[in-house]
Design a protein around this nucleic acid. Structure first.
Lengths: 221, 221
DNA sequence: GTCTATATTGTGATAGAC
DNA sequence: GTCTATCACAATATAGAC
């Protein structure tokens, strides 16, 4: 959604100066580190290098801006999860690739999972809006059919004795938990591992290599 | 910490009318569902059945109150984690008991993990204060020695061929992730499982029974 | 200890010049 | 489109009566 223009007229020249994008970027940074409740419009304006009035010019209100940020962040993360399981590869391969792709992707912006979980905890209603945008008008159905396909995949493996049986919902939660949690609990981990960023990165390197084994091993018959 | 009393004098009579406790209880409920940033002192006062001024009488400021709540909630959860591993039982047994004890405990108040993670995400500095209170003056050391003991336990099992080798930090994160995440991501789970509380509870029942197998299986050599 | 009333600042939002 | 100035109200915090 672009700037608000007087009834139907296209936006003025200089529309592409990138101001709107800069504001959104600043808002993302501030909302991610302070939460929707803790964030201040003034702080966002300062970080974007503009004044507060401009935020309202581009995004009506604080809540609109928060929604825009959440949508943007959410739509970037979730499809990667769905996408990894769309291929025709062997289940084992999908799992391994998903784990490594997720760690690689989120490593770049390690605060995102914490932000998403916190935002959903305090504003669960945002979830339905986000889910609709990603999956279409009936998110619950889309999710369920995804779980069903995963379940069929797991059943097939169990039938040929390649894996032990496990409920699809439980497995999906396990998989995502093992990937997401280290980032969501980053502050605690830093305490356990000893404060510095470097240790955290070493931990992630090790995890990237070993987590697939842990999961695949757990699935062995 | 009791009410503020004029220089050294003990609190007046009727001190035990339970007002302070009622305020703290109300504050816990509100902070847990709205976060420190989103919570309003007025809302807490209403929920406690008193007026706003009393909150300041008992707890200096909003931030003090938030700290008190976080300490109280945090100190109730964390020791249960440490405690489960203090016994002399076999590692397998400790793991199984920890998983089930955790699920049973948190089930009563399923919003706590989300609250703690969110609070730590936005106010990581609160962690050191909490950790000091639980573990004494040097939390980083206490945590590290705990991890070391767990590591020794794992090494022993690996040495006799009962388990495959795994780094203690990775295993600890896996264990906690698998327990905590379903609660922290409760809103998402409800979407996946189909909205209602009953389905969530069935999911937890199933999980309580199967998660130990998943973990123990992952550790098999 | 508990209340009412009020001070004081913070903060989202708007008006209007340029 | 972007700014300055300002409004209106929400929210924390305090003063002081009872």
């Amino acid at each position: 959604m672009g700037p608000l223009t007087p009834a139907g007229r296209p936006p003025r020249a200089q529309r592409d100066s990138g101001t709107e994008a800069r504001i959104l970027e600043a808002a993302r940074a501030v909302f991610i580190r302070s939460g929707t409740g803790g964030a201040r419009m003034q702080e966002i304006a300062a970080e974007a290098g503009v004044n507060q009035a401009l935020l309202h010019y581009y995004f009506k209100s604080k809540d609109h801006l928060a929604q825009a940020v959440f949508r943007e962040v959410g739509t970037r993360i979730v499809p990667s999860i769905i996408g990894a399981f769309a291929s025709e590869d062997a289940l084992e391969l999908k799992i391994e690739r998903f784990v490594q792709a997720y760690i690689d992707a989120v490593r770049e912006s390690p605060f995102i999972p914490g932000y998403i979980l916190a935002e959903l905890h305090f504003n669960p209603e945002r979830l339905t809006a986000l889910a609709e945008q990603i999956t279409g008008s009936n998110p619950a159905n889309a999710v369920r059919s995804f779980v069903q396909r995963l379940g069929a995949d797991l059943d097939r493996q169990a039938a040929i004795g390649a894996m032990r049986p496990i409920a699809a919902e439980q497995f999906l939660v396990n998989l995502i938990a093992l990937c997401v949690f280290p980032f969501a609990a980053r502050p605690v981990l830093r305490l356990v591992l000893g404060q510095d960023d470097e240790a955290f990165n070493r931990f992630l390197d090790e995890r990237r290599a070993e987590l697939p084994d842990f999961i695949l091993n757990a699935l062995r018959p």
